[in-house]
Amino acid sequence: MCLGIPGEIVELSADRDDLAMVEVAGVRRAVNTGLLGPGEVRPGDWVLVHVGFAMSKIDEAEAAATLELLRGLGSAYTDELEALASSDIT
């Protein structure tokens, strides 16, 4: 199962305008923000992350509700977190 997981933008890349550091459940990874367009995200914004890409911006309330729902999925959620933790797009 493939999931879009909410993550909070914690830092923008100084070297590339299409990369940002995102935190998902305590895991920090670089994600590509190019699908959202230049200047569309900044630290504190929430995005849905799938396979290393920020797919869309969401608000904090939607992020919290989605995370709660995903936690209820059990292994599908933890599998996705493990895949995120082992990924590196830089």
Rank of each mutant, 00 (worst) to 15 (best):
D45I: 02
P38V: 13
L81S: 11
S86V: 01
T78A: 07
G7W: 05
V24M: 02
E23H: 06
V24I: 12
G52F: 03
A85C: 06
V24C: 11
D17W: 11
E23W: 07
T90M: 12
L70Q: 08
I89R: 08
V27S: 01
A30E: 13
V24N: 01
V27Y: 06
E62K: 14
L19Q: 11
E80S: 15
G4V: 02
G37Q: 10
P43H: 01
A63S: 09
C2F: 11
P6A: 02
P43T: 00
L67I: 09
W46C: 13
D17P: 01
A85L: 01
A64N: 01
G34M: 09
S75L: 08
W46E: 15
D79V: 00
G34T: 13
S56P: 00
D15H: 15
G4Q: 10
A25M: 06
D15S: 15
L84S: 04
R28W: 07
T78H: 08
E62R: 14
A64T: 04
R29K: 15
G52E: 00
M21F: 05
E68R: 14
S87G: 13
G74M: 06
L36T: 02
P38D: 14
G39I: 00
S56Q: 07
G44K: 08
L48I: 05
G44T: 10
S86I: 00
V10D: 02
V22E: 08
A30I: 11
D88F: 13
A64D: 10
S13P: 02
D17N: 07
A25I: 00
L73D: 03
A30Y: 04
L12K: 11
I89N: 03
S56K: 05
S87E: 12
L12N: 06
V31S: 05
